[in-house]
Design a protein around this nucleic acid. Structure first.
Lengths: 202, 202
DNA sequence: AGCTTATTGTACCCTTCAGTACACTACTTG
DNA sequence: CAAGTAGTGTACTGAAGGGTACAATAAGCT
């Protein structure tokens, strides 16, 4: 059978997830296209047969990696109260910290997004969806701030979230290019003060 | 001889530049890695021998394409007075227009940058350099505005330029992902109002 | 013309890599 | 234990793609 199957045992699940996390790392470091399946299998101590047991193709794996990276990002997000100023600031600081630790390699989701934007419509949908979910998480926090009057009534949480996410992505791009956090810090500081500018005026 | 040579005749120059522009288009549409040399040669009606006459490798071509795309961007930039509010706004609008016309494919320089960030240090330097030149062009405009008091004395043109470029890049990323100008418009509108917020307070 | 340099055509080599075939082991359940 | 299902090892195929070899043609230049 060449049909794909979900893992049915604990061992199977571990295998599959080992493949995904290994692929995520390699694709993050080298890019999707520059990552050979064989490398993923070597690093995760798997074989071709195991791979095609759980995935139908490389694209299938890429989709899984995208989902995995989004989950990682959203998971980290949950560690912060995005409905408070200090929470948002702390999140920004954590993003900076993370970017530094990962040696300025860029956004795990964003760099995938850019490379996959030239792929088929199916992949494009997934990418768009990923950003939407990220943006919503932020928008929810801002909406909640607005509800309790921490943001001005004229403030538009969705637009603010969109602009903030853009600043984050742009910060990642420049920070990666210049191999330093400087540009990202500038971008995030600016984004933060832009948010603060939406506090209610008395 | 396998050594590279600069074209010495008009025909040679045309050939070389045809290869570069064709490669630029294909790499922009498909990505660098997804663009085969053979495709570039087919589309530009050239042969392998011609290619390796003018370029030492694919990487060499990629570097030329990066430079070409940067020149295109900076060339467009020169059509606007970046030391006036209306000029900046017009430039932003032109970026939006361009992104729409090119079917939301992203920034010609930025998408290269992201994909090439995983390449060798030489390429990284070129990418960083490209963004620096872009940023400087903008910073010069803002510095000139500050000099004639169109910006507050506390404004930092370099930081503003950096944050603006980040907003542009982030806008491109989200706009490409969502296949629409919406996110980019939001990012640029926000960036613009951020700049306007640096006007001198009386 | 004759010599030199610039440009071009074509066939080829070799590696990488996604995907397949097929046989094998290991666990589980009756 | 037998049988079935989940998981695994390995060798192979075929195409794509970067790069080379080498000879041929075109365009000066004296």
């Amino acid at each position: 059978m060449t049909t794909v199957a979900e893992p049915k045992t604990a061992r199977g699940r571990e295998r599959k997830s080992a493949i995904i996390t290994t692929a995520a790392t390699l694709m993050y470091e080298r890019g999707v296209r520059a990552t050979a399946l064989d490398d993923v299998l070597d690093y995760s101590d798997s074989g071709k047969s195991q791979f095609y047991h759980y995935f139908s193709s490389k694209d299938d794996l890429v989709a899984a990696v995208l989902e995995y990276q989004l989950m990682t990002v959203l998971g980290e997000l949950r560690g912060f109260r995005l409905d408070t100023w200090s929470g948002i600031r702390a999140w920004f600081d954590a993003l900076l910290e993370g970017q530094e630790q990962r040696e300025f390699r860029g956004c795990p989701v964003g760099s995938l997004a850019v490379e996959l934007s030239a792929c088929g419509p199916d992949m494009q949908r997934r990418v768009a969806d990923a950003f939407s979910r990220w943006e919503s998480a932020l928008a929810r926090g801002l909406a909640s701030m607005k509800a309790r009057r921490a943001l001005d009534r004229s403030a538009r949480p969705e637009a603010l979230a969109e602009a903030t996410l853009a600043a984050i992505q742009g910060g990642y791009v420049l920070s990666t290019a210049h191999h330093g956090v400087g540009p990202m810090r500038t971008a995030l500081d600016t984004a933060y003060s832009r948010l603060r500018a939406s506090r209610p005026r008395e």
